[in-house]
Amino acid sequence: MSDMSDPIKSLTELGKKILSSIEDGHFPRIEIPARSTENIVFDEQTEQFILGDSRTTRDSSNSKHIRSFMQLMWIASFSKRLLESGRTSSLRDLYYSSEAFGVRFKDQAESDRLLSDLEALIEYPRESLGFFPEEHSSIYGKVIMRYTVKGYEDKEVDLTISPDGLPIGPALLSASPVRTDAKLILAVESGGMFSRLIETRCWERFDCILVHLGGQAPRSTRRLMRRLHDELHLPVKIFTDGDPWGMHIARVIIAGSANAAHIRDLAIPTAEWIGVNADDIVRYNLPCEDMNNRDLKRLDELSKDSRYLSDDWQSAIESFRRLRKKAEQQAFSRFGIDFVVDEYLPTKIQ
């Protein structure tokens, strides 16, 4: 719990600052780093999104600001209670808990957004404030982690302990990696592929840690990958469906998302996308579907996205555009159940 004491201190200071302003008869104001798109820039050097310098002011004397200001402080108080009691909350729980305090959010998007404001304000990610997203993705591989959560302090866990993989939750996120035999982190998009790779003992064959992303990777999952990448010096490869959506799942892990631009230490610039790309679809003659309008529109959007400006990414987009086809990871099953492990991955990973 020792690393949680700092957010508590920051929160307490925030509370004191606001309280003393009220006691002096001044309406409190706070400045939050602006998270609007205009203030999100793609930093070429670190190859990830970061926030610019502009800030938004919340003035409690402004009747348009007071509600969200109050909601922000409620989240702060909720967070402090979580941290002090060593508990965690899902984002959904946060949203539902508000009602009992007379706070009431319009929808979960609103409470999520205000939590992001709080992250930006006190410069701690939500996981450090006790909040975790609902969608659990999983991890499996030859790593030993040591827990720090209450009741499990110093217990070690081998991430091959369950054949289903271990869910990436608050406990695992606050655990520290002890040692590993793995040489690689392989993140895969679909649950089906994740299970397949565990069953076929791919993790042994490639000495890899498998991570199930489950669509766009949750921030906690990205955080854990980044941590394993940093502390165990493991390269990261990302294996997704062969469509614009899969490509973007990879790109977000590599370059970060606009939504989390205020959070540092999330992007993994050296991570690599290993398909399925348009050329793979052709080369392996994968069963595929025609792209629909939504897919094509998404390609257009991505081609203009600042994260895709490099030649490599532009040509990846261009290939999809020409092909106008898409394929799922599972499509390799057409060539037999082991084809991915025996043929595809070896080529891609080497």
């Binding site: 509370g15 004191k16 309280l19 009220i22 109050m70 108080s77």
Partner: peptide, 28 residues
């Protein structure tokens, strides 16, 4: 409504600050 919200702000800020009494806001 404003006064309800502002009083909640004061209350939550007190909680976050770890202070027991909530300042009076009616004059402001």
């Amino acid at each position: 409504e404003f006064s309800r919200l502002f009083n909640l702000l004061a209350k939550f800020s007190s909680e976050v600050a770890g202070v027991d009494n909530i300042p009076d806001t009616s004059r402001m």
